[in-house]
Design a protein around this nucleic acid. Structure first.
Lengths: 112, 112
DNA sequence: ACCTTTCGCAACCTTTGGTTGCGTATAACT
DNA sequence: AGTTATACGCAACCAAAGGTTGCGAAAGGT
């Protein structure tokens, strides 16, 4: 019943900048802190910190090559995150449905 | 393409404590800062602040009665939030699907 | 060799989630 | 009615997180 979601994954995905970063990484098939920061309204350092967070929760993986560090989305982990998002949504949806049914039942019982 | 989500709603729902509060409010059909704080690992004041945030984005509405302030979930707004959650999830899912197809195409092209 | 680029580290600022402390208003009890 | 208890709001304060600037170091291009 209670939202049994891994809060780490959630909050990783909860930040708007990180969501956009994931979006960009998916769209471009990967990127570095520098390339991402060019397409975002924040500095490279901010992006680097976010990449650190995403990396810690396993949503991206790194491939150092020369002086660059290429980040790519870990598909399995993102899929897991998506599943958790929709599970929370589904739980709330279910509650909303139940509330609606109960409200209707009360209506019938009271209003005739 | 870009995640066209209302960041206010997202970040309102992004906080784990607020998610649990919404959960409790849905389960109990409403509550006050005090009753919620009794079932959460934070103080009443923290809950009160969160209720303020949720109220500002319209996810809950208040009914003052005597010395109490009863908070209830705004179903329409929560439904909207749920829709946004699943829309982001769907977008990422779609990208993951596309990536998979492209990867397979590359496999076929290269590997013969 | 020199300059450019990409990065990491550190200091700092601001916002936010959280706390404690206190005053006030409404309800409840005697 | 007067006192006690409860629910709340406001304010000060603290720690963590997102963001910035500034700097030094490693890898690449000329």
């Amino acid at each position: 019943m209670s939202v049994t979601v891994d809060d780490e994954l959630w909050s990783a995905v909860g930040d708007p900048t990180r969501r956009r970063m994931l979006d960009l990484l998916l769209a471009d098939g990967g990127g570095t802190a520098t390339t991402l920061s060019e397409r975002l309204p924040v500095t490279r350092q901010a992006v680097a910190k976010h990449l650190g967070v995403l990396h810690r929760v396993g949503l991206v993986h790194v491939t150092p090559s020369g002086r660059e560090r290429l980040y790519e989305v870990d598909e399995a982990q993102l899929a897991r995150a998506v599943a958790q998002l929709s599970s929370v949504g589904a739980a709330w949806d279910a509650r909303l449905q139940r509330i609606k049914r109960i409200a209707e039942a009360i209506q019938r019982g009271q209003g005739g």
